[in-house]
Computed example of a mutant assay.
Amino acid sequence: MKVLLPVDGSELSMEAVRLALRMRREGMHLSAVLANVQEPASLYEMLVAHDPDVIDHVSAEAGLHALQPARDMLDAAGVDYECEVAKGDPAHTLIDISERFACDMVIMGARGASALRSAMLGSVSNEVLHASTVPVVIVKPVDAEGV
Rank of each mutant, 00 (worst) to 15 (best):
M1D: 11
V3L: 11
L4C: 04
L4A: 06
L5I: 04
P6I: 04
G9E: 05
S10A: 01
E11L: 10
E11N: 12
E15G: 12
E15F: 15
A16N: 02
A16T: 00
V17K: 00
V17W: 00
L19R: 05
M23I: 06
R24V: 00
E26Y: 15
G27F: 00
M28S: 09
L30Y: 08
L30E: 07
S31V: 08
S31E: 13
A32I: 09
V33I: 04
L34N: 12
N36V: 12
N36I: 10
Q38A: 12
Q38W: 08
A41N: 06
S42C: 13
L43T: 14
E45S: 14
L47E: 15
L47W: 15
V48Q: 08
V48I: 10
A49H: 09
A49F: 08
A49P: 10
H50A: 15
H50T: 15
D51Y: 04
D51I: 06
P52I: 10
D53H: 14
H57V: 13
A60M: 12
A60K: 14
E61T: 09
E61G: 07
E61Q: 15
A62C: 15
L64S: 11
P69G: 11
A70L: 00
R71T: 03
D72I: 13
D72M: 14
L74W: 03
D75L: 05
A76N: 07
A76M: 05
A77L: 04
Y81L: 07
Y81R: 06
C83N: 11
V85E: 00
V85W: 00
A86M: 06
K87T: 14
D89P: 05
D89L: 04
D89E: 07
H92T: 08
H92W: 06
L94G: 01
L94M: 02
E99N: 12
E99R: 14
F101K: 07
A102V: 11
C103I: 02
D104C: 05
V106A: 01
M108C: 01
G109V: 03
A110N: 02
A110L: 02
R111C: 01
R111N: 01
A113T: 13
S114A: 04
S114D: 03
A115K: 04
A115M: 02
R117M: 11
R117G: 13
R117S: 13
A119W: 08
A119H: 09
M120S: 09
L121C: 05
S125R: 05
N126V: 09
N126F: 05
N126E: 10
V128N: 06
L129F: 15
H130N: 14
A131K: 13
A131T: 11
A131Y: 08
S132C: 03
S132T: 05
T133C: 11
T133A: 14
T133D: 12
P135G: 03
K140P: 09
K140Y: 11
P141N: 08
V142P: 13
E145A: 14
V147M: 08
